[in-house]
Simulated scan of single mutants.
Amino acid sequence: MLLHKKLKSYRLILASHSPRRQQLLRDCGLAYLPADKYEVEECYPATLPAAEVPLYLSGLKSDAYPVPLGPHDILITADTVVILDDRIIGKPRDHADAVATLRSLSGRTHRVITGVTLRSRDKRRTFDSQTDVCFDALSDEQIDYYLETYRPYDKAGAYGIQEWIGYVAIRRIEGSFYNVMGLPVQKLYGELERFIEA
């Protein structure tokens, strides 16, 4: 039986207002309810290794969800980080920061990790997906064009792989393409199936 049929008696709640995550879940054929916005301070211990941060933050977002879960609810929370040289590269603060970020990624390979937490009233499961992304060398003209045209200031690493820069400047990826967009839907699909059958 297909997963969307197995989930008919459940209510998936996506605690993310990222349009990319919402689109990816919809495109998987999984019906969900978008959670209302709620406050969560996305802080993590300074000693936490960069690769563990998205797992920690997805769990933090799950724990901060303010509405009690019903007996058939499954809450989905996620956090995506870009890592270069063991350092997390967040969303750019402004245009200058976005330029500096893309210059640092130019001609190099970085890692994108998304942590996902599934939680019901009586159990939880946290997992991650990791993708290596290799950029060609970017000219300042390419960087300026991309930033002016697409304004990726809401994206970790200052780029969206599904946009122009992904078509013209990403040489290769190893791992899930959709993970780089913000939600590793292939892995999530399998984890949801195991979650409801456990």
Score class of each variant (00 low, 15 high):
residue 98 A to G: 06
residue 149 T to Q: 12
residue 168 V to A: 12
residue 101 T to M: 02
residue 6 K to M: 14
residue 31 A to D: 13
residue 177 F to R: 05
residue 42 E to D: 11
residue 139 S to L: 14
residue 173 I to W: 00
residue 7 L to M: 12
residue 121 R to N: 12
residue 172 R to Y: 06
residue 88 I to L: 07
residue 58 S to D: 01
residue 144 D to Y: 03
residue 194 R to M: 08
residue 22 Q to G: 05
residue 74 I to W: 01
residue 151 R to W: 08
residue 16 S to W: 04
residue 134 C to L: 11
residue 66 P to D: 10
residue 15 A to S: 13
residue 22 Q to F: 03
residue 192 L to G: 02
residue 121 R to Y: 12
residue 44 Y to F: 15
residue 21 R to A: 12
residue 196 I to E: 04
residue 107 G to V: 07
residue 91 K to I: 11
residue 185 V to G: 01
residue 103 R to K: 07
residue 111 R to H: 00
residue 148 E to F: 04
residue 98 A to W: 06
residue 184 P to I: 00
residue 170 I to W: 01
residue 113 I to C: 00
residue 116 V to T: 11
residue 46 A to V: 15
residue 134 C to A: 15
residue 64 A to E: 14
residue 30 L to I: 11
residue 8 K to H: 08
residue 162 Q to H: 09
residue 133 V to L: 05
residue 55 L to V: 13
residue 18 S to M: 12
residue 146 Y to R: 07
residue 118 L to K: 08
residue 30 L to E: 06
residue 137 A to I: 15
residue 47 T to Y: 09
residue 20 R to T: 11
residue 78 A to R: 02
residue 39 E to V: 10
residue 189 Y to Q: 01
residue 120 S to Y: 08
residue 194 R to E: 05
residue 24 L to I: 12
residue 105 L to R: 06
residue 75 L to T: 04
residue 23 Q to A: 15
residue 61 K to V: 03
residue 181 M to A: 09
residue 68 P to H: 12
residue 57 L to E: 05
residue 100 A to V: 02
residue 20 R to I: 09
residue 111 R to M: 04
residue 182 G to T: 01
residue 191 E to G: 04
residue 121 R to W: 08
residue 142 Q to Y: 01
residue 40 V to C: 13
residue 179 N to F: 00
residue 150 Y to M: 06
residue 91 K to D: 06
residue 56 Y to T: 06
residue 169 A to G: 10
residue 170 I to L: 07
residue 178 Y to I: 11
residue 1 M to P: 04
residue 128 D to G: 11
residue 83 I to S: 03
residue 55 L to K: 02
residue 97 D to P: 03
residue 82 V to T: 04
residue 6 K to D: 09
residue 21 R to T: 10
residue 68 P to L: 13
residue 15 A to L: 09
residue 186 Q to R: 00
residue 37 K to E: 10
residue 123 K to S: 14
residue 133 V to R: 02
residue 181 M to T: 11
residue 121 R to D: 07
residue 191 E to D: 10
residue 17 H to C: 11
residue 181 M to K: 06
residue 114 T to S: 02
residue 173 I to N: 05
residue 193 E to F: 08
residue 75 L to Q: 07
residue 37 K to T: 13
residue 78 A to N: 08
residue 185 V to I: 04
residue 44 Y to N: 07
residue 36 D to M: 15
residue 119 R to I: 13
residue 45 P to L: 15
residue 154 D to Y: 07
residue 182 G to F: 01
residue 1 M to S: 14
residue 151 R to M: 10
residue 84 L to D: 11
residue 187 K to R: 14
residue 112 V to N: 02
residue 125 R to Y: 07
residue 66 P to F: 09
residue 170 I to E: 00
residue 120 S to M: 11
residue 61 K to C: 04
residue 116 V to H: 04
residue 36 D to C: 11
residue 16 S to N: 09
residue 53 V to G: 05
residue 113 I to W: 00
residue 150 Y to L: 03
residue 126 T to P: 08
residue 116 V to G: 02
residue 134 C to D: 07
residue 99 V to K: 08
residue 102 L to Q: 06
residue 54 P to F: 03
residue 85 D to E: 14
residue 49 P to D: 14
residue 67 V to C: 13
residue 163 E to Q: 05
residue 91 K to R: 09
residue 81 V to T: 07
residue 54 P to K: 03
residue 113 I to K: 01
